[in-house]
Amino acid sequence: MDKKVVATIGSFDGVHLGHQALFAQMKAYASSFPEAELLAITFDPYPADVLQRGGEPEHILPTTERDQLLREQGLGIHLLHFTPELAGKSAQAFMEEVLHRELGVTDLILGYDNRFGHGAQLGLTDYQELGTPLGITVLQAEPLIRERETFSSTLIKGLIRSGSMQRVTEILSRPFCLFGSVVEGLHLGRKLGYPTANVALSDPRQIYPPHGVYAATLSLRGEAGFGERLEAMLYIGQRPTIGGGLERTIEVHILDFSADIYGREVRVEVLAQLHPEHKFASTDALREALQRYEADTRSYFAEHPR
């Protein structure tokens, strides 16, 4: 028997429980074939960035972090550079040129709502008919539905926008994270007794939760990946007390920490919103609020040991 290449295709933004259920079905299917290769075919940039339908796209994950999570799922990755030309390719041409000739796919497991090819109007039966002469068996995975919700990237983005971080954590199977590097700020936090790491996102289109104060952790990237999760107080907002109208900032005050981390790549886990953004009458009132916020952050970690 020729080697089996069992593949799936998609953007996989978030690599959430719905995606993980698809991968589990792939693995179960492939277990019947010795030495089958498991392959996730995905895109960089995300297709929505190129197609630009319905406004500015938002991402749950930068593509580099998505790819790392796919590898952790035990999948090989084939990365396609998404272009208008690729978007215009018909499903038949894509299956012949990419799946069959280039990758040698023998079995294609589609997500429950997955469509590919120009216009994305085909259904499972159409893909099966296209795959048969190429020797590609096309199957469709079952969706993951809990409490009448179908898990999807769209659902998760809506929950992030609403600040429902606990629910986001459940559906992702891990906390939602912001990724970036520490850059020079205005040093206002230091003047108030709360020095912060200002984080510039590595993906400017990464989605973020509502403005406010959050319990969070910060991890520094090292040679072996991200390290210890340091307990922190996170602020996302426009600093209305000092004038407002500023660009959104992401500032992290790490508890009981004083090292210089300028220029370091970081991962910030957003765990729970503690307070919405608020404009204070003075910097003294802001300083007092920061003291309360720190106490609330410490209480959060005391009640939610890691």
Results as ranks from 00 to 15, higher is better:
residue 25 Q to Y: 00
residue 118 H to I: 10
residue 210 P to K: 11
residue 254 I to V: 14
residue 294 E to Q: 12
residue 190 R to Q: 10
residue 139 L to E: 04
residue 140 Q to F: 09
residue 158 G to A: 02
residue 147 E to L: 09
residue 168 V to C: 02
residue 142 E to N: 09
residue 77 I to P: 00
residue 42 T to L: 00
residue 73 Q to F: 05
residue 129 E to R: 15
residue 251 E to M: 11
residue 76 G to T: 01
residue 142 E to D: 06
residue 107 D to S: 11
residue 135 G to V: 08
residue 2 D to G: 09
residue 147 E to H: 11
residue 89 K to L: 15
residue 189 G to D: 08
residue 249 T to H: 02
residue 237 G to V: 12
residue 180 G to P: 06
residue 36 A to D: 13
residue 132 T to A: 15
residue 1 M to I: 13
residue 61 L to A: 04
residue 18 G to F: 08
residue 209 P to I: 14
residue 204 P to G: 03
residue 149 E to D: 13
residue 71 R to S: 01
residue 18 G to H: 05
residue 77 I to Y: 00
residue 286 L to I: 07
residue 185 G to Y: 05
residue 53 R to H: 04
residue 88 G to Q: 10
residue 255 L to D: 01
residue 180 G to L: 03
residue 71 R to W: 01
residue 95 M to F: 06
residue 186 L to R: 08
residue 252 V to S: 03
residue 62 P to K: 01
residue 173 S to T: 13
residue 174 R to K: 10
residue 20 Q to K: 14
residue 14 G to F: 03
residue 242 I to V: 15
residue 20 Q to L: 09
residue 230 L to M: 07
residue 167 R to V: 15
residue 73 Q to A: 11
residue 5 V to M: 01
residue 248 R to Y: 09
residue 270 V to W: 00
residue 265 E to P: 00
residue 247 E to C: 02
residue 300 Y to P: 08
residue 140 Q to P: 07
residue 61 L to C: 01
residue 241 T to R: 07
residue 231 E to Q: 07
residue 156 I to G: 04
residue 224 A to T: 14
residue 105 V to W: 06
residue 252 V to G: 07
residue 306 R to K: 11
residue 82 F to D: 08
residue 116 F to I: 15
residue 70 L to T: 02
residue 99 L to A: 07
residue 16 H to L: 00
residue 131 G to W: 03
residue 104 G to M: 11
residue 113 D to H: 11
residue 171 I to W: 01
residue 99 L to H: 05
